[in-house]
Measured scan of single mutants.
Amino acid sequence: TLFEALYDYEARTEDDLSFHKGEKFQILNSSEGDWWEVRSLTTGETGYIPSPYLAPV
């Protein structure tokens, strides 16, 4: 399942991933609570992002 960003987000740590509203992601790991490890389909980068900022496509 692909997810889309509902809002912009600016990374706060080196493990976070900055992204823009509308960017699409592949979920790599969603078992860590509200922070999911994802791969951006736009940039190819991986990192953690807050799951409340995402919605299924």
Rank of each mutant, 00 (worst) to 15 (best):
A11S: 14
H20I: 12
L6Q: 07
V38F: 01
I27S: 02
W35P: 13
L17V: 07
Y7N: 07
W35N: 08
S18C: 05
G33W: 09
A11T: 05
S30G: 10
E14Y: 09
D16N: 11
Y48E: 01
E10P: 05
L6I: 11
L2T: 09
I49G: 04
Y53R: 01
T13V: 07
A5W: 01
S18T: 10
E10W: 08
V57G: 05
D15S: 13
L2H: 07
Y53L: 13
Y48R: 14
Y48S: 06
S30L: 08
E14R: 08
D34R: 06
I49V: 15
D34T: 10
L2W: 10
Y9C: 05
E32A: 13
G44W: 06
E10C: 11
K21I: 08
G44A: 05
Y7K: 09
T46Y: 07
D16F: 13
G22Y: 05
S40H: 08
K21D: 02
S30E: 08
H20F: 13
T42D: 11
E37M: 12
L28G: 01
Y7H: 09
R12Q: 14
Y9Q: 03
T42H: 10
G47M: 07
E14G: 13
E45N: 12
K24V: 14
Y9T: 01
Q26K: 06
A5L: 09
A11V: 02
V38L: 01
T42M: 10
V38A: 09
P52S: 15
P50R: 12
L28H: 02
W35R: 14
R12G: 10
E23G: 02
W36R: 01
D15M: 14
T1P: 13
E32G: 15
D16R: 13
F25K: 00
Y53H: 07
S51L: 06
G22H: 06
L17F: 15
E4D: 01
I27A: 04
Q26T: 10
D16K: 14
E10G: 06
V57E: 07
F25V: 02
A11M: 04
T1W: 13
L54M: 07
Y7L: 11
K21L: 05
A5T: 05
S31C: 12
E14N: 12
W36I: 07
F25L: 04
H20S: 14
F19I: 09
F3Q: 03
G47H: 06
P52D: 15
S31M: 13
L28P: 00
P56H: 07
Y53W: 11
D16V: 13
S51Y: 12
N29F: 06
E14I: 08
E32T: 13
Y53F: 12
Y48W: 15
V38S: 01
V57K: 02
S31P: 09
R12L: 13
A55C: 07
S40F: 04
T42Q: 11
Q26G: 02
D34N: 09
G22L: 02
P52E: 15
K21M: 08
E45S: 11
E4Y: 14
H20V: 14
E45F: 11
A5V: 03
